[in-house]
Simulated scan of single mutants.
Amino acid sequence: MSRALLIVDVQNDFTEGGALAVAGGDAVASAVSAFLEAHAADYEVIIASRDWHDAAGDNGGHFAAEPDYVDSWPVHCVAGTPGADYDPLLVTDAVTHHVRKGQGEPAYSMFEGVTDAGDTVGAVLTQAGVLSADVVGIATDHCVRASALDALAHGVRVRVFTDLIAGVAPETSTAALAELAHAGAELAESVQA
């Protein structure tokens, strides 16, 4: 049975000091790196996603001068800028596939992005025969939630490692984890890997 690790949006703009910083983002980057050092060989596929928004335009209404922080946001993770880079505390040597999402449009799930070769996450998982995936990253209540729900919809057994995620707000993060558990995801800590 093939396993995948899905690393969601551990980027400079989502960690401390970024345009949409999430408290605990740097700690997640460090902890995911430590986890990879110990467990990368346990996975057939390791996919890391990044928001990669266009510099011009509003990216389908995703960027706004007066964002509502639900459907519209301040400018963040613009393609080719330092904000779109992986957090420097995230060591990506073991990553087998890098995915970019949100080019010209809103995108929360890594399943909405493509690799440099143009493959979708679903295609990568299917080709590798992945039956289970562990999900980590930022932000629990947005892109982690959407990516884990899409992994479930793809027919993959999902575990969300609650010690390797960080959310925007406690209330919405708790609600997202409850929704994921209800949808069939297992909530676990990475020591259970």
Rank of each mutant, 00 (worst) to 15 (best):
A151Y: 01
M1E: 12
T174R: 15
A153R: 11
V22S: 14
E171G: 04
L177I: 10
V28S: 09
T15L: 02
T115S: 15
W73P: 00
V99S: 10
R157D: 15
I47R: 08
W52T: 01
V124E: 07
V32I: 14
T140S: 10
G155R: 14
S33V: 00
H98C: 05
E189V: 15
A148H: 00
F63P: 02
T96E: 15
T174M: 10
R159Q: 14
V22Q: 14
Y86Q: 11
A166C: 08
A166G: 10
D85I: 04
A139M: 09
D71P: 02
S30V: 13
D51F: 00
L164P: 03
H39C: 05
P88S: 12
R3W: 09
I47D: 04
A19K: 08
A23M: 04
A31Q: 10
L180Y: 07
E16L: 02
E171R: 12
A34G: 14
L36T: 10
Q192M: 12
V191E: 13
V99A: 11
D54R: 13
S2W: 06
G137C: 04
V158T: 04
I138P: 00
M1I: 05
L177R: 06
L152A: 02
P106G: 13
E44L: 09
L125E: 02
T174I: 01
G83W: 02
E44H: 13
L90E: 08
A166K: 07
D134S: 11
A128G: 08
D9E: 07
L90A: 09
H154G: 00
E44A: 15
L131Y: 11
A153M: 05
F111L: 02
G18H: 11
G137I: 00
R157F: 08
G102N: 06
L89P: 03
M110Q: 01
A148P: 01
R50Q: 15
L177M: 13
A169Y: 08
P82E: 14
V99L: 12
L125Y: 01
T172W: 10
T140L: 03
P106D: 15
V130I: 09
E179W: 04
E16N: 07
G113M: 06
Y108F: 14
G184E: 13
D26K: 12
T140F: 01
V91P: 05
N12R: 14
R3C: 04
D119T: 14
S109M: 01
Q192N: 11
S173H: 01
C143A: 05
Y43W: 08
V168D: 01
A183Y: 05
D54G: 04
A166Y: 06
R159N: 13
